[in-house]
Amino acid sequence: MKGILLSILTIVKPRGESVSPRKKLENSSWNLTKSYKNRIREFLIEKIIFILGITALLIMGLIFVFLIQTGIRLFEDVSLGQFLFGREWYPNATNARFGILPMIVGSIMVTMGAILISVPIGIGSAIFIAEVAPPKTKTVFKLTIEFLSAIPSVVLGFLGIVVLSNWVRISFNLSSGFTVLTGSIVIALMALPTIISVADDAIRALPGEYREASYALGASKWETIKNVLLPAASSGIIAGVMLGVGRAIGETMAVMMVMGNAVQIPSTYLESGRTLTATIAAEMGDTVRNGTHYNALFAIGVVLLIMTSVINTISEWVLHRAQREGK
């Protein structure tokens, strides 16, 4: 306390006009012992930064706590088996049913479809950007891909309704174009930027010696890509695909708008289906807080959170390993 008062006093004390400013500087820091003021300041700043630093961890923890805490109450009314493997979803009937199997299947189907479309195209594009394209073209294409990832999903969903669903309906001669396939195409477009950029990074991160060694052996550019670069970058490419899968499973608005949302296990890609995400977004508005339906939607959230966390953790692990191997 005394120290603080003293340091305040020294600040307040008027300065002699005759002393040169540098002389004052020289004299001002003669005391090499830490002042209380500085100690408290340092301590406070460090603590504040620390608190800001752990917010991400805190939020991640809170997300789990809030979702699980609410979602778990569902199981007072419904068993876990009925929830995960039940085929009937009648949240508002007198004899309510909360089986989410159709949605799990819907989410997995739309994701698989999207991945089947986007992986070959994505890897091909990544090779094009990393190894084939001239620099200018590369810049323009990369920018376009980045913009694609910035387009809001609701805009893509809207186009899915007005353009894509008609195309699907007419091409496959269906009565409705709101199908799992329509969802897969839209989601493929959304997963592409992730897959391309991660795979492109993985290919470009390979040391130049790989290419040189292969060219020196008389291999053509394509042979080098096929036999040397792709195998070496495979972990990175797999990680990119996994991140794409994570993004596809979590996507909400676009699938909700183009898949028709029928609660059924689709037998083909040309039928309507419903995803876990769409169920939450579409029905939360109709629920009563802490009612069974409300809790059920939170339980779906937990299922989603677990799925995406597992996928993302695996892909980060693969990516981490790829980076270590690269070094």
Binding site: L25, S29, N31, L32, T33, K34, S35, N38
Partner: peptide
């Protein structure tokens, strides 16, 4: 020691030291 003051002391102000 700098001018007789141990500079690796716990309560030494590194900031002040670097000004000197």
């Amino acid at each position: 020691t700098f001018e007789g003051r141990e500079i690796y002391d716990q309560d030494l102000d590194v900031v002040a030291l670097r000004r000197k």
